[in-house]
Design a binder for these strands. Structure first.
Lengths: 127, 127
DNA sequence: ACTATATACTACCTGTTTGTATTATTTTAT
DNA sequence: ATAAAATAATACAAACAGGTAGTATATAGT
């Protein structure tokens, strides 16, 4: 999220791994691994070799927070049963089910509706 | 949560550790540790010795899900900055701050407003 | 006294998250 | 050719969550 949001400030720019590592304060290897994952997920594309780097593979207007979270860590933490039961549904609910579906839906809605282009870059002071 | 919700079905009853261990499928030692924590937090009270056990220390109408979660694991996971920055506020927001406050408030509200007595015990099929 | 119960403390285990480190390979502009 | 860049695969490490296990002690009803 931090990488993509940082890049979304200037979506047309080409960013090198080295540059992003400095800006975001993470290790080189870790960032590169994430970049490769983000490439495979289709959010960004890479150009190898000298003068290479990363840039968005599609319009940032078309990238929701939901898609990003889902591709990086999956949405199961949010959408699985909050008490950990394998089989838990509205017809066979756990003790928290009915309360949790309300929250779950709110979160899914927020993440699905918010796109990288919706962020207020004027206000953000940390990436 | 599972323990307290189970007990809330019959809030006046005295429950032994052994009984709850069988009903909730957790280890004896683990449950006892949790019970001691819940006692210290004031949700339940214990009577030692033969014919002892646990029962609620106050009305279940007065116990919100917020209080329970807060006493067991703290609410910092929810209320700290979602991107992990130490100093993150509305005047100094991280990239996700403005989106996250909406969710945060919704969750806090739900957990604060829902009390053990509000659960629909008729419908619940797993504890 | 005996027995059934809770308490306390400590150590351990297993998996996950959130990264870091190492090493070697491939690609491309100049 | 060379240098600057991305790629790939693997191992490691620290912190934390979610438990389990052991052992000994305290309490209270009969």
């Amino acid at each position: 999220m931090r990488i993509l949001i940082y890049m979304a400030q200037k979506p047309e720019e080409l960013y090198t791994a080295k540059f992003l590592v400095e800006k975001l304060n993470v290790s080189d290897k870790y960032l590169r691994r994430l970049m490769t994952d983000l490439s495979k997920s289709g959010f960004i594309k890479s150009t190898q070799g000298r003068d290479g780097g990363y840039t968005f593979a599609k319009e940032i207007h078309g990238i929701s927070l939901y898609e990003v979270i889902d591709s990086v860590e999956g949405m199961n933490k949010l959408n699985d049963c909050v008490l950990g039961f394998d089989e838990c549904s509205c017809t066979n609910p756990c003790a928290m089910h009915n309360e949790w579906v309300v929250v779950r839906e709110k979160l899914n809605q927020l993440f699905t509706e918010t796109r990288l282009s919706d962020l207020d870059f004027e206000r953000i002071s940390r990436y």
